[in-house]
Structure formats: structure tokens, C-alpha cells
């Protein structure tokens, strides 16, 4: 009697969760099918659940579209070049460079924070935690002015640099490196290895899973870091795919076929990356939380 009740309860819950999962999948389904629909299907009042015809019109439209940038800074107006492929290249470049730089700086700094005793360690660590607790949008204005002063405004590097400075990667790798026995590092030093050798030959191989988590996490987050892209980039040839699609949407706000094609182009690559590296990604999320 007592054991029967929970099983019915869980049976209902399973069905509910499955339905919820379907509703979470639906937007993605709607983006992908929408991008292949003909105009009549898209503006139909009764939703066309499965496209009556699969066409590439929207993608052709996206690639040939000439759209003026919605975004203007001062009297500066961007050129009107179609650039979906250029946006993709920009986005891949930005995400890959952010990932590499973050992994390099974060693994070095995380190692030092976890395994070395130095003056200012506690202060530095509290600064890192405090910085992580703030939404980075708070610093958007000073950051923008700083980038302008450095002549990096409207340059892809203006979106990369703040990502590398963001301390989440350091935090993640510090957590991971703390789990590695200090004896390993000490043994190395007694054997006469240099500091750098100790790091590259002993420490780095051991924190590799942590670095992997940091890499995939940074890659996906920078790909989707719409906010930074929005404030730092303006001209069409410098935009990223998310920003480009968002800008295009401002121009053609009711051409949902076109916008869905753009959305598919922006999201499908990163979803594939996510599914392939899902294991590392999950690890990164949970690792960052230990002892939060």
C-alpha cells in the first residue's frame, strides 16, 4: 500500500517531465522547421506544424539580403554588406581565441592560487569571488569608454578581452587544482625541475579535465555573449552571427522565415558543439559550484 502510492506519483511525474521536455524542445523545432517553410506556411494563422514544402528560400534570402545596420554610434553608420558567412567566421574566431586565451591564463592563475602561498592571496581570491557575483553589465559603460580610448571599439578584440578577464575560468581551475596532491608538485621541485617545467609537465596534464571544462564553457558562453557584442561591435563586417541576426531582425521584423534561418545559423553549430562535449560541460558547471 505504502509502496504503491509513490509509484503512481512518479508515473505521473515522468509523464509531466516528458511533456515539459517536449515544450523545451519546441522552440528549437520551430526555429529549424520555420527556416525551411514557405512564406504562406509562416504567415498562416493556423500553425503549420510540419512544413508543407521544404524550401531554401529563407537561407538564400538571408545570404543575399542587403541590410543597413540598425546600430549607430554618433554620426557613424555602418556599411550595407550582406555578411552571414563573415559573421560566422567572426564568431568562430572570437570564441576560439577567447577559449584559448582563457584556458592559458586561467590554468596558470588557477594553479598559482591553488598551490602557492603568496602575499595578497586571500585578497585576490575575494576580489575574484566578488567580481563573479556582479553582473558584468554593471561595468558596461566604463568598459566601452576604455575600449574606445584604446581604439578597440568596433573591433572583435573588444569582445574577447573582457571574456578573458572574467574570473570564472580561474575559479574553476583553482577548484580543480586543489584536488591534486601537493606532494606531486613538491616531489617535482625536489627533483630539480624548474617552476615552468613543473607546471607544464606535471600540473597541466593533471588539471587537463578541468581545462577541458573551462574550454568548452568559455567557447559556448562567448558564442552567446550577445551583450558584449552588442555594445562593442557596430559595423556589419565586424559583427557576430547573433548580433547580425539581431540587427537584421530590426530591419525585417515580420519576415519570420528569414529570421528563423538566421537563428538556425546562429544556434545549430553551437548546439552541436554542446552535444558533442556535453560531458565536459556538465563537469564544468558542477565543478564551479563545489564549495561555491
Amino acid at each position: 500500500m505504502n509502496s504503491k502510492k509513490p509509484s503512481i506519483y512518479y508515473f505521473i511525474c515522468y509523464i509531466l517531465v516528458a511533456l515539459l521536455a517536449l515544450s523545451f524542445l519546441f522552440p528549437l523545432y520551430w526555429i529549424i522547421t520555420g527556416s525551411f517553410k514557405v512564406k504562406a506556411d509562416i504567415i498562416s494563422k493556423t500553425p503549420v506544424w510540419i512544413p508543407t514544402q521544404w524550401v531554401l528560400d529563407n537561407y538564400q534570402n538571408l545570404l543575399s539580403k542587403r541590410s543597413a545596420p540598425l546600430f549607430q554610434i554618433g554620426s557613424w553608420v555602418g556599411p550595407t554588406i550582406p555578411a552571414a558567412f563573415r559573421w560566422l567566421i567572426n564568431t568562430v574566431f572570437m570564441s576560439a581565441v577567447s577559449m584559448l586565451l582563457t584556458c592559458l591564463t586561467a590554468s596558470m592563475a588557477g594553479y598559482a592560487l591553488a598551490k602557492k602561498r603568496f602575499y595578497g592571496r586571500t585578497i585576490l581570491f575575494s576580489l575574484i569571488v566578488a567580481a563573479m557575483a556582479l553582473p558584468k553589465q554593471v561595468i558596461l559603460i566604463p568598459l566601452l569608454r576604455e575600449m574606445s580610448a584604446l581604439h578597440l571599439y568596433d573591433h572583435i578584440w573588444a569582445t574577447i578581452i573582457p571574456i578573458v578577464g572574467w574570473p570564472f575560468g580561474v575559479f574553476l581551475i583553482k577548484q580543480f587544482a586543489e584536488g591534486i596532491p601537493t606532494e606531486m608538485v613538491e616531489a617535482c621541485r625536489i627533483d630539480g625541475a624548474s617552476e615552468w617545467r613543473t607546471f607544464t609537465d606535471v600540473m597541466f596534464p593533471m588539471i587537463k579535465p578541468g581545462v577541458g571544462a573551462c574550454a568548452i564553457f568559455t567557447f559556448i558562453n562567448s558564442w552567446n555573449d550577445y551583450f558584449m557584442q552588442l555594445i562593442m561591435l557596430s559595423s556589419t563586417q565586424n559583427q557576430t552571427i547573433s548580433l547580425g541576426i539581431a540587427t537584421m531582425q530590426g530591419e525585417n521584423s515580420t519576415d519570420f522565415g528569414l529570421i528563423m534561418a538566421g537563428s538556425a545559423l546562429a544556434s545549430v553549430p553551437i548546439i552541436i558543439v554542446f552535444i558533442v562535449f556535453q560531458k565536459y560541460f556538465t563537469k564544468g558547471i558542477t565543478m564551479g559550484a563545489v564549495k561555491g
Binding site: 523545451f24 522552440p27 526555429i31 520555420g34 552567446n224 541576426i245 519570420f256 538556425a264 553551437i270 552535444i275
Partner: peptide, 30 residues
Amino acid sequence: SAFRCIFYLPVVTGSVAVTMVWKWMFNNYY
């Protein structure tokens, strides 16, 4: 892990694509 992945999808999809599709779903006419 499949369900965990599905519930995480909207985050990975990115705010722009997610916003666009919801804008369509909320649309007045279609």
C-alpha cells in the same frame, strides 16, 4: 543525461535565437 541536455538547450541556443522564436510564437497574427 538526455533530459538534462534538453533542459539546458535553451541556454545553449543563445539569447538571440531564443528571443526571435518566442517573438514569433507571441506574435499577434501568426
